[in-house]
Design a protein around this nucleic acid. Sequence first.
DNA 1: CTGTTAGCGCATTCAA
DNA 2: TTGAATGCGCTAACAG
Lengths: 345, 345
Amino acid sequence: MNEKKKLTLKDIGRELGISVSTVSRALKEHPDIAQETIKLVKDYAESNNYVPNLLAVNFRKNRTFNIGLIVPELVHHFFSTVISGAISEANNQGYNLMVSQSNDILKDEVLASRAMLNSSVDGLLISISNETHEGKHILEFLEKGKPVVQFDKITEKLPTPKVIVDDKDGASAAVKHLIEEGFTKIAHIRGREDVKNASERCEGYKNALKVAGLENHDYWIKTCIKISEQEGYDFTKELMEGENPPNGIFCITDLVALGSMRYLKENGYAIPKEVGIMGFSNWMLSSVVSPRLSSVEQHGFQMGVESTKLLLEMIKKQDVESIQTVELKTELIVRESSRMSNSEM
Amino acid sequence: MNEKKKLTLKDIGRELGISVSTVSRALKEHPDIAQETIKLVKDYAESNNYVPNLLAVNFRKNRTFNIGLIVPELVHHFFSTVISGAISEANNQGYNLMVSQSNDILKDEVLASRAMLNSSVDGLLISISNETHEGKHILEFLEKGKPVVQFDKITEKLPTPKVIVDDKDGASAAVKHLIEEGFTKIAHIRGREDVKNASERCEGYKNALKVAGLENHDYWIKTCIKISEQEGYDFTKELMEGENPPNGIFCITDLVALGSMRYLKENGYAIPKEVGIMGFSNWMLSSVVSPRLSSVEQHGFQMGVESTKLLLEMIKKQDVESIQTVELKTELIVRESSRMSNSEM
DNA sequence: CTGTTAGCGCATTCAA
DNA sequence: TTGAATGCGCTAACAG
């Protein structure tokens, strides 16, 4: 209806009485072209605000300047932070970011990746669903020469670079901190056994206990399925009502920690006086609940930036062979839920 | 490096001894083509898994099957919920969603929209930044025949369809609820004067007071700039330390309400016994804090779906003239922070 | 330094 | 019912 037709190279050429290819080259200041021609063309292009037809350019060059990103859940503090970083870096380098989510369902992940594969994307950033194991749909990208970078939730089975957080180390630091604050009986509410991050954090927990030579019991480890607030509540109840109740709890996630704190508060336990709590992820909410929740910052924004950098490098080099792993360090964030002493801050 | 070259129509034609155009038509079951030819071509295409080169198709048809979406902030419960809905609907209709954010900075919004305008997107969904008033960068889309739909944070100045939430009505309902629960002196912590949603909610607040014939004072209305937890805390302090302290507070947002509750709890006020609190937006956190926060659900997912539907309709009709406004109803979510009676639930 | 030519993969008009 | 020819807008090899 409205659709103004755009100025093309041909139009400029006709108007200026020179050939299309000269115009094309002039616009990119090709060394072969005379300075005055360059000026002529550029001036004309500018004043008539010529905009190249990207559709044509991309078709010609067989690339799109788009990259895809798939996460399990979009409405999620950590993942949206990662996306934020990815957008920032992508835009910096002249790329747009196409976003989709799998809802932790393999079928949806396959659909989303297929939708992106067919020429709408030059490469893919993905954090896989809990159901993804083989990853044939990911391999399809590599087969077509489109690089893939995995981040956060990854599988070793896929030959792609990976950007992850040092979960084990972060968990270790969290538990070590509880220990230093004087907590001696520390429980852990963990995530599913088949999810790598959860297992890493659990490892970190166990290590820290071992190094400190503290008590450790299988019955102090509870396993969440959905990583919900309610699970935090319920497992804390189990722990506190058990034979040998802990005086510190390290939770796989801030949300779970919130549930844990709710149980404790409702039942008259003082936090951190009687029970110290550590979360993980440092969601925004951890700084606005009371008592404020100690947590482990995962630097999601940086993860988005790093993953995107890696991917764009590969895209530019046409490289689909790289398989390096980048491990980002976490940062311990101490707040009221775990601080007994006033030694720090 | 790896890059398998794709099968093209030409390849199929050569292999089958027929012309490219016949292959092209056969694949889309053009009525002119003989059934057996169709079958022949389709079978060949399938068994050699032919995939059309979308780059070429799009170039030819001058469209991308991508739509763009720009929000002020990605790491934000409401906006990420909207995005989630937009992705879902877009994917359903065979479109991909390109996402960007403005950080509430006009310059960034212009950059993001320009990046999308140049042939990488068939239409735009946008929630404008606080700094956006003229919106020339948005008009550029319309001039190029690319439809735009505004959602949530909108301006009337731009001739596009709008999808908004009935903020006034939602706010009214929230305050009315406080009144029904017996709160008689209700204050409001609002957002910036130049942001439409904030003003609508404030209107709703005032209306509800007027209808009920309750006290109302300018000094019961406090204006946030950043909509932060800290502002909620500070303004609540001002309110409670003032001459005529309220016994109910309606906060522009759950986050602000959290700050409000923090002040009250720290200073020994019982919630809701002494002071009732209402938030707005129904963020996830409102159901996991204690006391659980009453709020107003804005149906962000549905907003994403509706906006996308509108946009895709316009794209399909080549329509950039439509300017209808869709207003979604809110839903009152009553939790502990405002419930005195046990009459409900 | 510049123009000519060719072609990317596909859709479509015009002939046959 | 099919094929040949054309062009979308741009780039690049080649020739002058």
